[in-house]
Every structure is written in C-alpha cells, then in structure tokens.
C-alpha cells in the first residue's frame, strides 16, 4: 500500500475519473471534488469517454468483460498527469487490479502498470500531493467517518480522510464501533445475498447512529449510497455525505473563495 509520492512542483493538470456511480447517482460529489481541485489552482480534465473502471464484472468473475471496459478507460489518459478518483474502491481497481487483469498481455500489462502509478484516490491526492492545509471556520459539527474496505485495505487512504477531517478545527470526529468492518454493500453481493447484506448494512447504520454524530462522512459513493438508502428505508433522516461535499461546504462556510 505504501507508495512513493511524486516530488517536485505541484502538478498543474490532473485527469478526473468520476466513476460510474458518481456520474449517474452522486454527481454533486464529483462537482465538489472538482471544485476543490480547481480551488487549488489545478486544471481538471474530464475525459468525456470515461464510463466505469470495470470492477463489477471483475469481482463477479467476468474478467473478460471487465477487460473490455478497462481497456476502453486505459486509452483516455494520453498525458502522464495524475488521475484523481473520488472513490477508494474504483481507485483500488485501477491501481492494483488492472495490472493483474492484463497479466497475460505484456503490452497491455505495461500500460496498466504505468496507469496504476498515475492513479490517486481523491483524499490521497489532496493530502500527499497537494499537501493542503485548510482552515475551517464553519459552525461546530460532530461527524463520524465510514471508511470503505478498499480505502482501508487496498489504498490505505482511510488515514488520509481522517487526516483531512482533522484539519477542520470546527469538526469533531467521533469513531463508530467496528469501524473497520464492511458496510455490506460489496457490489453485486448486495443483490446476490440480500439478507446477509441487509444485516451488515443495518448493523453499520446502527453503529454510525450510536456515535451521536449529525452525519457520517464517506469517501466512497458505493458505501454511501448503500447506507443512505438503508437509512431512508427506515425513514431515518440521518445521512452520509461524500468527503468532497463536506469539505467544500466547510470551506465555503469559512467564507473563502469557492
């Protein structure tokens, strides 16, 4: 999980890979992430032909289908700029699984390995590459954090999210019990094993609510949608926010440029 961070001047340009979930279901998280990047003076490039990282087919055992989709994405980044992905799960797919997906094709494997080095999860990019230090003067708030499994175990970026939130002086972050435990989404798992998935999601929203926080923060739209829709079904107004949205709101509230 440890990686060498680029040294030298800050990049001027980045690609933004929004992920299919953000594109269709949580566009505001994508907009907020882009706004925050632009706020740092970065030119954000959005390759229009991007669709999905291919993870759903890959994890379902349909690697050949995932390859077709992954290969289409791999052509979209001609420059060696960082590719910022607002999801630990999709970033993990592109960074760690693309090279495996093309293991039997030397040319594509080399391309996938090069691409993997360009991939940055959103919070990782903010903290380790841009080295942001933000001042927060928003209203005091108490939130809790849901860390996605890929962020934690593939990307190691659960620490970055925590560190970014810690920069916000007005924000009190409380820890849920069983923080490292999965929310029960698991992509197609939630469709194939709804009873187990529901049990896990139910326990997770209970744990988040028990913290007494006003909202939970997640850097992964998959988990966030799973938990928010579980809460909605319960008629509960407690909801989660994407990290990008939360950060953007805090900085806007501080009266800084947005």
């Amino acid at each position: 999980m440890q990686r060498d961070m680029p040294t030298g001047p800050r990049p001027k340009d980045v690609y933004f890979f929004s992920t299919c979930l953000v594109d269709l279901f949580c566009p505001e998280a994508g907009l907020d992430a882009i706004t925050l990047l632009e706020r740092e003076g970065i030119a954000v490039h959005f390759p229009e032909d991007q669709t999905c990282c291919g993870q759903p087919a890959y994890t379902s055992g349909f690697g050949e289908r995932a390859r077709a989709v992954a290969q289409a994405q791999m052509q979209l980044f001609p420059n060696d700029w960082p590719i910022v992905v607002p999801s630990g799960s999709c970033a993990g797919m592109m960074r760690h699984h693309y090279p495996r997906l093309f293991a039997d094709d030397p040319l594509l494997k080399a391309r996938a390995e090069a691409l993997a080095e360009q991939i940055f999860e959103f919070s990782e990019f903010l903290l380790d590459v841009l080295k942001v230090h933000w001042r927060d003067s928003g209203k005091p708030a108490t939130v809790t954090l849901h860390t996605s499994c890929s962020a934690r175990r593939e990307m190691g970026t659960h620490l970055h999210v925590r560190a970014l939130l810690a920069q916000l002086s007005g924000v009190n972050v409380v820890t849920q019990s069983h923080e490292s435990e999965c929310c029960g989404f698991g992509g197609t798992f939630s469709l194939k094993h709804p009873s187990i998935s529901s049990a896990m999601s139910g326990d997770k929203v209970d744990a988040l609510k028990e913290t007494g926080a006003e909202a939970f923060i997640s850097a992964d739209c998959g988990c966030m949608l799973n938990l928010n829709h579980t809460l909605q079904k319960r008629g509960d107004s407690f909801q989660g926010k994407h990290l990008a949205t939360f950060l953007r709101e805090r900085l806007a509230a501080a009266g800084e440029k947005s």
């Binding site: 594109d23 949580c26 939630s190 529901s198 999601s201 949608l225 579980t230 079904k233």
Partner: peptide, 22 residues
C-alpha cells in the same frame, strides 16, 4: 430492485449526470 430494495429505498439516477453538468 431485486435484493437491493429488501432493506433499501430504490436507487434513482440524479436529474443530470456529472458529465452533463460539467
């Protein structure tokens, strides 16, 4: 929506995709 709505409200697309808004 199959297993999803056993314990969740349905997933509904946003009014406009990110790419359209961009």
């Amino acid at each position: 929506q199959s297993g999803w709505t056993v314990s969740r409200t349905p997933l509904k697309p946003a009014p406009r995709t990110l790419r359209e808004q961009l």
